[in-house]
Design a protein around this nucleic acid. Structure first.
Lengths: 229, 229
DNA sequence: GACGGTATTTATCACTCGATAATCAAGAAG
DNA sequence: CTTCTTGATTATCGAGTGATAAATACCGTC
């Protein structure tokens, strides 16, 4: 046999590699903290993992370190796919691009686990949460506004704060659908795609309507007096 | 002196009546739990109140009972003013009514304390939170849709689930402004009235636009195939 | 099959939590 | 001043917390 795994390259069945085990712990811990909040006890967490509590401290120096891993996993995963870049593909109609993006984005974040971790950490005032909000603004919403401006044949410029605010209202309206469904467990319109399409139509029709007078009197933007950002 | 306070009707200065004291405790406890979450300790709470921890148990049988009082206070206060009834005053334009209502409503709920208690209790899955969501739907949003239908000269009928969903998106968009400002402490467009006016314009223009084809082909509502509620 | 290192468990510490009982203080009535 | 009631404090309990050290079980390797 030419097999020569000096450091046990891949164990046959059970006994996952330390790193795999660690990731498994993080995954389950994410579920656990999503359910119980970050005040959930390490003993109960260990019970769910089917191990004893002190074992956690072999893989993570402290509970806070474990929680940190959970944050990273939750916050970075949905963004690393880079869908937002497809927003700028101007060969396709703006409506289609917005619908596609929000369908993909909400497919990623509209889960009980993601939303709960997001809200829990938001209430704790974590930097990573604040940073995420800024990423949404810079990577998604400014892009949305820019593309809408282009579609409305408005001159290209940095979005005004009023435009950005309306994009936030639009975005927040969609986001709130997820909260109602997965946090409040309320009855929502089951067809998420339709909800998004309707929201996009609402936003676009409002944007285009407010763009018309602005397009005629180039430059001067009566919706926003001065000084954005 | 004709003073005859057999049971000490009103103490001159300090030493508030038991009920006043109790209310003061609830008020401060609301602030405390808004900051620390409901896992905040009774000792720290007592310290903030300037009293010792066991004293709390003279006014409330248990911590949970105190929390219950906090819930009631927070959830019932902003609704008991009954602004939503002014939504139906059809002598005034729909835009004005919507703006007025949301200005008043957000004046009441857009505070750090209210929003945080709301989110904390929402994450705990409390009945009172679920009930509140239903109240928003029944007392506010169905009314909003009905008034918009009337303003668009559509036949009066129970809002379709798609209409209700768009009202939720509109409502949630405004609500999310408060979350961004008071939970995420993000920089928002400071002129709340303008944000609301713009959001109302967005919603109304989208609603009216979608209403036009529906108004011509009376009755059949192509935006909603069947079965609402 | 014995060895050696790693994975896991048992036992335990120091601390904090909500809650209770006993004690003390303060103000009104006699 | 004394007495009685009620407000408030001190001291403490038992359960649960995160974390550590020592002991044991497991598995690949020689």
């Amino acid at each position: 046999m030419n097999k020569k795994p000096t450091t046990s390259a891949r164990p046959k069945s059970k006994r996952l590699s330390p790193e795999e085990r660690r990731q498994e712990f993080i995954r389950k811990a994410t579920e656990f903290f999503a359910d119980e909040g970050f005040n959930g006890g390490t003993r109960e967490l260990a019970r769910r993992l089917g191990v004893t509590q002190p074992l956690l401290y072999r893989y993570f120096p402290s509970k806070d370190d474990l929680i940190e891993e959970v944050y990273k996993k939750v916050y970075l995963e949905p963004l690393e796919s880079g869908w937002e870049k497809r927003l700028t593909d101007r060969s396709r109609p703006i409506r289609e691009r917005l619908c596609e993006f929000y369908n993909a984005y909400t497919d990623a974040i509209f889960t009980r686990i993601w939303l709960r971790i997001y809200l829990f950490s938001g209430l704790k005032g974590l930097e990573i949460n604040r940073a995420y909000v800024n990423v949404v603004r810079d990577k998604i919403l400014t892009r949305v506004v820019k593309e809408c401006r282009a579609a409305a044949e408005l001159p290209a410029q940095k979005p005004t704060s009023a435009e950005l605010e309306m994009a936030w209202v639009f975005h927040g309206g969609i986001f709130y659908y997820g909260i109602r469904k997965y946090i409040y467990e309320a009855v929502v319109l089951e067809d998420k795609d339709k909800m998004i399409a309707d929201a996009v139509d609402l936003y676009l029709s409002g944007f285009m309507r407010s763009a018309e007078p602005r397009r005629l009197s180039r430059g001067s933007d009566r919706l926003q007096p001065a000084g954005e950002d």
